[in-house]
Amino acid sequence: MSSTRLLEVSGVSVSFDGFRAINNLSFTMPSHGLRAIIGPNGAGKTTFMDIVTGKTKPDDGRITWGEKNISLRGMSEARIAREGIGRKFQKPTVFEDQTVHQNLLMAQRNKRGPLAVLFYRAGGKDLDRVNELAATIGLTDELARKSGELSHGQKQWLEIGMLLAQEPRLLLVDEPAAGMTLAERERTTALLVEAAKTRAVVVVEHDMDFVRRLNCRVTVLHEGSVLAEGSLDHVTSNQQVIDVYLGR
């Protein structure tokens, strides 16, 4: 499924009080397919997502996006999200005080301006889409429940559902399987693989079995830069990777 380049990060660095969390990192992502990022704690995986989504401003480097090669540097988080980058956080963050339905409706790709939102009334098409998504993430029966009442795994799915509702071109997913049972993990894998058929999906994960099931190209991050890249078997046989990550 090779296709055009969607995201290109090149030579990006960022320091926190002198500590280089990301060091001359380069990374490209095609417009379709899955990619896993692995690496030890503190390798900079989350910080990488922070940079792409505009939460953290890089000190150096270029981040270009889409066919027109526009630069994401200097754009606000909201603007980047509207460009088509969706993000799932390491810790599930859904709006607990609101129903599953409201969460999905809020995420849905629609006009984001205050006036448009003020006069927005969900039409049949939008409601159908919400039901469809709820079915995909297995939360049809929970639509009217407050999302705070959901189980941990269900919250993770809801967040993935909200991502899908945004209809992004690139999904950044931080540790989606953390704290899930085996059955839940399998469902999550299926969700991500399905999503990657029509868009780019980058998954950060520690769990090797999970990564193996994703069956995709893997990037190993260490001390803020890419240590190895390739198939899972390829990177796991790399001596450096074994030393810093697997052999601990």
Partner: peptide, 13 residues
Amino acid sequence: DNEARVRFLGYQV
């Protein structure tokens, strides 16, 4: 409840 999350949904908080 979580303004950062709203930003990542694309709303100008």
